[in-house]
Amino acid sequence: MKTPGLLAVAVLLALAPLPLLVHSDFWLHFAIMTLYFSLLGQAWNLLGGYGGQRSFGHAAFFGTGAYAAAVLQVDLGINPWACLVLAGAFGAAAGALVGALSFRYDLRGSYFALVTLAFAEVFRIVADSVPFTGAGVGFQIPLRQAAVNFQFHEKAGFYAVILALTALATALAWWIENSRFGAELVAVRENEDAARALGIDVNRTKLWAITLSGGLSGFAGSFYAQYFLYLDPRIAYGVEVSVTALLVPLIGGVGTVLGPLVGAVALRALNEVSGTITGGAPGLNLMLYGALLIVILAFLPDGLVSLGARLRRARPAGRLGHA
């Protein structure tokens, strides 16, 4: 499975000069949102895809990163670039906290999904109640367009940042596929008891995975805050983020390097098309997400990246015996 990793790197490299070729803000925004989705999806994929720990509450890590970035730069005057790094650290810490609690008490499957969801909801209610997040009113980052403030006049600047972050996430996934840690993580996913019997420290492996995943989600949160300059508890800790995070890799292909990229492209494209048709009526967008989730699970449970293999298998002639 080494080719997809190299392919992913090639794809991302090929995307780098995009702002030089495309001058339309619409398409740059599309590219930025696609990469942002694939960053969030890859974050989920590290834990849910390779580790088999399917979270319903990635908003807990995303929102913590987003609020950390916003609050630290506005209230404490820390440079927004430093805040990006700190957001990753906060996201990772939130991941480690949730992971330490739920893995220590051996929550698996549905129980893990539910407890992550509950954490995200608790964080949302807290963000709704404490003063420093601006509570229900929301939190605004003042407009100070300058590269040093991680605010760009041109979309190309945001594009470069999100491309680099997505490349980092993709590289992490590639590393997981090719490292001992990744092999252990996959072993844990396939059979925890067998993995333990082989001497793998199951809890530590899962804890590292959720910490990495939380860190990447924190980056995504910080990027979101800088790009939109506004947060409220529903945006940061709402269901939409958690669902996006899991839907992207599910559409593309869970537990693959390329899956989140493919899934993000498909989901964003669909978003644009449906947005044009429905004129952005409230709720329709998420309704589409739900329908997509069911359709993918029903007809293409291994995601779009499995489509190639499926088609090859469907072609009967000239194949040697192969189940």
Binding site: V243, G283, N285, M287, Y289
Partner: peptide, 28 residues
């Protein structure tokens, strides 16, 4: 039953999908 192919980890996702559809259908 159809969409989950009987895989337990997928059932939760299918019902999650259902809840998202119903909630937002009502909102719409």
């Amino acid at each position: 039953a159809t969409a989950s192919h009987g895989r337990e980890e997928n059932i939760l996702l299918v019902t999650l999908g259902l809840s998202i559809i119903i909630d937002n259908f009502a909102l719409y």
